[in-house]
Design a protein around this nucleic acid. Structure first.
Lengths: 120, 120
DNA sequence: GTAGAGTTTCACACTGATGTCAATGTCAAG
DNA sequence: CTTGACATTGACATCAGTGTGAAACTCTAC
């Protein structure tokens, strides 16, 4: 599929898909005419990237994450100690973010429950 | 305490504390000389704000969240249906973010486990 | 009173993620 | 062939979150 269809399926603007590619988060094959072409596997990848970016992870970290993920899938953790350290640090950050978001989520849930109980 | 001490305790730059106040996320009393003054309860609040912002929640939403939280604590959900709707939408977004981050967290954990198992 | 550390406000600048527009190229349909 | 939809690149603009520095004020300590 081409970029427009991918954008439609993922809900991510074409502008951003190109931006992510430029940031090295994504690779796209090219048709003879120069158009980018994507497989269905790219849908998931784009959604994942967009999700992480929206969650406040900067693109250069998203890149590291996805690379680690790929290496992990291959069971070839060909990563340096430095990268591992970096990931370990990032893991802490992630956990903090998750905790913070979870707390907010619970608060909202509680609040909405309260409102809907009092409402009708 | 004054802003410098608060910054030290929370790890949030004074610049940002003032910024968050300017965005209406925070209120600070003033000493007779004009200096901002904070109670210990502000420490938690600042950390919470910073956490949410770092997690990709824009400040204006953080504001809504915290207001809902306060109203919830008072058991006075004096909020309009609009706000409730907005919160419900945001809840979905939060859940997506959490899911996305959780997935990344698990990936990193798995990856690190694999590396450390293979390493020494 | 003077020096120094901390504070105030204000402003200018930078980065990262996006929106948008312009000029051009490709292709399918009429 | 022309039109219209979609693609390309590139530039410019915007917005939020921060960094940084200036100029002035407050307070403490010497």
């Amino acid at each position: 599929m081409r970029i427009g269809e991918l954008a439609e399926q993922t809900g991510v603007a074409t502008r951003l898909i190109r931006y992510y590619e430029q940031q090295g988060l994504l690779s796209a094959d090219r048709l003879p005419n120069g158009y980018r072409t994507y497989s269905t596997s790219h849908v998931e990848r784009i959604e994942r990237i967009a999700g992480l970016v929206q969650a406040g992870i900067p693109t250069r970290l998203v890149k590291v994450l996805l690379e680690a993920e790929a290496a992990c899938a291959l069971e070839q953790p060909a990563c340096s100690a430095e990268v591992a350290t970096l990931l370990a640090e990032e893991l802490v950050g992630l956990e903090k973010r998750i905790e913070c978001l979870t707390r907010s989520r619970d608060t909202i849930r509680q609040y909405l429950a309260q409102v809907s109980a009092a409402g009708p």
